[in-house]
Structure formats: C-alpha cells, structure tokens
C-alpha cells in the first residue's frame, strides 16, 4: 500500500471545485466539465455568492472547497487591463480568504484570463510572499499586437514542484489551444526567468512540433524563454495561457481524425494530477 504519511488521499468524488465566475468569464462550463471528467464535483460560483451579496440560500463559502479554478474569458470586459478588475474585487472582498486558501496548500488554477487575474492579484509569481500587495509581473500584449488563436505544443519542464503536473512525466509534450491577445509575461526583475527556474516555478514552455525551441508562431506571444505556464514557489498555484479544459477528449483536438492515439485529450492529465493529490 502506498504510504501517504498517514493522510489518505480524498476520493475524487469527494473533491469539491469552485469555478469562479463574474460577468465576462466564458470558459466556466468547460472548466467545470474538465474537473467532472476526472471524477470531482465542480460548481460554477459567482463572486457575489462568495462575498455575501446574493440571497442567503445561494451563498457559498470558499472554505468549503478543495480547489479554486479561475476560468478564461474577458472578466469585467478586460477593462483597465485584462484581469485587473476581478483581481481588485477579489482583493477587496475575499482577499484574506484566498490567501489563507493558498497558505493551506489548497490548489488554485488560472487559465488564460484566470492566469492574468492571478498575476494581477499577486498570487503569481509570488516570489517573496503568498500574495504580493501589488502585481509584480504583467501579462502584456503579444509581440504580434494581435489576438493569437491556434493549437500550441507545450513541454512539461517542471521538476516536480507543481501539483498540477504531478502525474505528467517531465519532458512530455502536450498539445493545447491558445486564444489570447495579452500573454507576454513580463517582470521588472532582470533575473526573473532565472528565479523562476531556480525555484522550479516554470511549468510549461512552448516548443515546436518536433520538441525544439519555439519561435513565433509556436511561441504565440513572445514571452522570454517561451514560458507558457508558471506556479508559485509552493507549487499549489498555477497559471497558464493555453487552455487544457478545451482538450479533455481527443475529439476537440484539431487533428483527431489523423492522430487518434487514445480518446483522452492532452488537457486531462492536468486535472487528474491535481484531483489525485488532494488530501
């Protein structure tokens, strides 16, 4: 029997996922379905339900969930900057609860707009504290100046810290679609990439189809070192620009009639990894 240090993993069907929405999020159904596909319970929850601004019978408590997922879309219309408004609304209402959630080691996933929110909220890269007071990085306009939308090839470069890739072998490549205009990860820190690397915070890098170093269009936004997804130093908060929840089954891969190795989509292992790890 596997040793879990006395703490048994939860059964997937007992794992509760909060898929957070506000006006403008638009990938919440796929996100909830992705967690359901690996057996977890997933609920779409509007921010107002968490902050007590809805009728009592519809209220929800973040404390009751095991995983928090921030789906893609255009929260609050991408006004000011992508993710800035939802991040500010979270910070001013349930900021402390979210910080505690992360400190508890509970996983938080942000995809696309969700990644932008995590960066604006200071939960990523979070070098020095769980949640920095202001953003210490930015997801800025793609080098092309355009909305980029196509399948990309990602390589798992994480050495084992990130809970979301715990069952994906290092170096494995996965195909996932991207769809964003602001995906270029920037920081003021000249040693940004090195710090991420040293802390094992780099999760996915864009590569070419043959696994070699990406350049445009394989790296769709021009992020240094082809970074597509990062985690916090503890490994329980991950943000990524590509959309794993859109490729849960092979049927939504663009080449499924030609390359149908199995019916499982390349995004599924991310959800399976994290749900299996909940204690």
């Amino acid at each position: 029997m596997e040793d879990h240090g006395g703490i048994q993993p939860m059964r997937p069907e007992d794992v509760k996922v909060c898929v957070l929405t506000i006006e403008g999020t638009n990938c919440e159904d796929e996100m909830a379905d992705a967690f359901r596909a690996v057996g977890a319970q997933a609920e779409k929850v509007h921010l107002k339900q968490l902050i007590g601004k809805t009728p009592p019978e519809t209220r929800k408590d973040l404390e009751d969930y095991d995983i928090l997922a921030l789906p893609g879309g255009f929260s609050a219309g991408d006004y000011i900057r992508a993710g800035a408004i939802l991040a500010a609304r979270i910070r001013s209402s349930i900021g402390k609860e979210v910080e505690r959630f992360v400190d508890d080691g509970r996983p938080v996933l942000g995809v696309c707009n969700g990644f932008q929110i995590l960066v604006e909220l200071g939960l990523l890269p979070a070098f020095d504290e769980t949640m920095s007071k202001t953003a210490t990085a930015a997801l800025y306009t793609n080098d092309s100046g355009r909305f980029e939308c196509r399948p990309t090839v990602l390589r798992n470069d994480n050495r084992g810290k990130c809970i979301f890739t715990s069952s994906i072998e290092k170096g494995r490549t996965l195909v996932m679609p991207i769809a964003h205009a602001e995906g270029k990860l920037l920081s003021l820190d000249p040693n940004f990439v090195q710090r991420l690397e040293d802390n094992d915070q780099i999760v996915f890098r864009y590569v070419k189809e043959d696994g070699s170093k990406a350049e445009y269009p394989w790296n769709p936004n021009g992020t240094e070192s082809d970074i597509a997804g990062i985690c916090n130093p503890a490994g329980n908060v991950m943000g990524m620009m590509p959309h794993p929840e859109r490729v849960i089954t092979r049927l939504t891969h663009s080449d499924w009639t030609r390359n149908c190795r199995s019916m499982e989509g390349d995004g599924l292992p991310i959800f399976r990894s994290v749900v299996q790890k909940i204690r």
Binding site: A135, A138, L186, S187
Partner: peptide, 10 residues
C-alpha cells in the same frame, strides 16, 4: 493608480 489603474511592471 497604485491599487488598480496602473500595473507598475509596464
């Protein structure tokens, strides 16, 4: 600006 309108990185 510090709390919402500007991201100091960019």
């Amino acid at each position: 600006c510090r709390k919402l309108l500007a991201n100091p990185v960019i």
